[in-house]
Design a protein around this nucleic acid. Structure first.
Lengths: 134, 134
DNA sequence: GTTCGTGCAAACGGTTTGCAACAAT
DNA sequence: ATTGTTGCAAACCGTTTGCACGAAC
């Protein structure tokens, strides 16, 4: 994914592609990591030293509102962002705190729609443990 | 669950049952709600007006450390506490933010142990939607 | 009198907001 | 000129911490 694609992607979602937004998008919309806002900020700052925290936070929230990102409250104390917009599960490494995507098909949950009294809109499995060093 | 039981429970877990801790425990260890620390604080304050936030926070953390509570980062921005210590799933009402326990047997997840590269220690299904008014 | 628990207030970390300066059109 | 975006700093909210007072043994 290159710069031009990010610009097009932002436009497609009704977001004016300012230089700062593109810089944030280039990192956060094309990563398998699950960066926190501050991680995104310090990362983007390398290439764009004058960008402010507020701009990064505002941009990330804008991306979430416009459907380019999900924000996750899986770890304690801070939100992380996930550009993978199709459904999937999450694995959290308890020793490192790192979050990994698990493909939707790698697990299957039965009886979700049979929950009486609850109208299910979405669900995911959250798995915790340790990633094998492989 | 009455006061005496809480005292016994705390003792059983090596926690000195001070009046404040018992007051916190009476609420938070015997609820199906999933109170945040501040909710617990204001709730306990009704019966114990001079209790401080710090005491409530310290007490809750102590309970977690001693295995009487789980702390959950399911909702954005704050932790909530859950005295249900056996495994179960969670349903989050997206309009109210309320969290409900789902019995472990109400759902079943297949293939969790087949995740290659991951050593699974625990997992749960997190379901979001709307609770039916019923 | 030593130990432990408490209350207060200050500090903290992550996030948000108000606002003035600045593009861009 | 209007509209939208940025940077800065202050505010904010949930949580933790330092410390001196107080209760219990």
């Amino acid at each position: 994914m290159v710069k031009k694609d990010i610009v097009a992607l932002l436009r497609l979602h009704g977001i004016h592609p300012s230089a700062q937004r593109v810089a944030v998008g280039e990192y956060v919309l094309d990563t398998e990591e699950h960066p926190s806002a501050d991680e995104a900020w310090s990362r983007v700052k390398k290439k764009f030293p004058r960008i402010s925290r507020a701009t990064v936070y505002n941009t990330l929230n804008l991306f979430v509102k416009k459907g380019l990102l999900h924000s996750l409250a899986l770890a304690e104390g801070k939100l992380v962002f996930d550009p993978k917009m199709d459904r999937h599960h999450h694995f959290i490494d308890e020793s490192t705190g790192k979050i990994y995507d698990l493909p939707w098909e790698s697990l299957s949950v039965s009886d979700v729609d049979g929950l009486h009294g609850f109208e299910v809109r979405q669900y995911q499995v959250v798995v915790r443990g340790k990633k094998k060093s492989t």
